[in-house]
Design a protein around this nucleic acid. Structure first.
Lengths: 146, 146
DNA sequence: TATTGTTATACTCTATAACTATA
DNA sequence: TATAGTTATAGAGTATAACAATA
């Protein structure tokens, strides 16, 4: 296996897996699924429409209906009608969802910063700059959580 | 959102999401689910036991039963009894699975290398070295595919 | 006609609990 | 007793297709 994958590609793949598993583990600690963790984080700066969220998550609208249904059933989010467009629904954090989001976000940040501990500050900055060029070249949507 | 996440943590998260979405997209192109893509890649260098695979994937043994069932139903892998231990089953690539694995692996490698295109060779090497220190410090299992 | 969102259906991935067979 | 694997069940996430309501 080690000989099978190019070194730099393998590094990329392993880093990605590591970040994902950290995210999943923290979510579980907060009694959230990874998708629910993402949903809370995306709603951090205000309500969003269903279609908008489906685009941000890169899923079908029908899939998002289910995600929001389950989030609503758990009391994390709520649907709010949009006065200007009677077809549309916004999704907003409930008070409990806001508290959960803040705790989860703080925890994820701590854990992911911990991952970068082996690097000294200059390296961290350099890594960040390189990653930023890679993600920008790939056209990553800014509004993104794993 | 951008102000909400620390820059270096956000970079990590976005890179991870990018790699995952590339892996998923390539898998879909080969008519595989991401998990099936991982299974094929892990079996690249020979058959593995069910329990061993469950550990490598960090899932329950019962979950792995389902994954292998579906892989077998699609003709990608097969269960092979282990003579030395009549409880145990090895999972091996079929001929079709081997072909699928090779094509998928080549495609994933190409796409992920493409992600690193914006970096020059020295930077790529530096990035690889840093990522390796991070993953080693975190104790990533060597046998790993996202 | 196009867009927003939901319902119905089916498949994959996942865990837990209970089970069989073997070591 | 402990380990290898399966079955049964439940829930989450996903897509497709068909639909309703509104723009």
């Amino acid at each position: 296996m080690t000989a099978f994958w190019d070194d730099d590609v393998l590094a990329l793949v392993q880093l990605s897996g590591l970040v994902h598993s950290v995210f999943a583990r923290v979510a579980e600690r907060h009694d959230l699924t990874p998708v629910q963790g993402r949903l809370l984080c995306v709603l951090e700066d205000g309500p969003r429409g269903m279609a908008e969220l489906a685009r941000a998550f890169d899923v079908e609208r029908a899939t998002l209906t289910g995600i929001v249904d389950r989030g609503e059933r758990r009391g994390l989010v709520q649907r709010v009608p949009v006065p200007a467009d009677r077809r549309a629904m916004n999704v907003a954090l409930t008070d409990a969802g806001m508290r959960s989001m803040l705790a989860f976000h703080a925890d994820v940040t701590t854990e992911l910063r911990g991952l970068l501990d082996p690097l000294d500050p200059a390296e961290r900055q350099h890594l960040g700059a390189m990653v930023e060029r890679v993600t920008q070249a790939a056209g990553v949507i800014p509004d993104w959580v794993p």
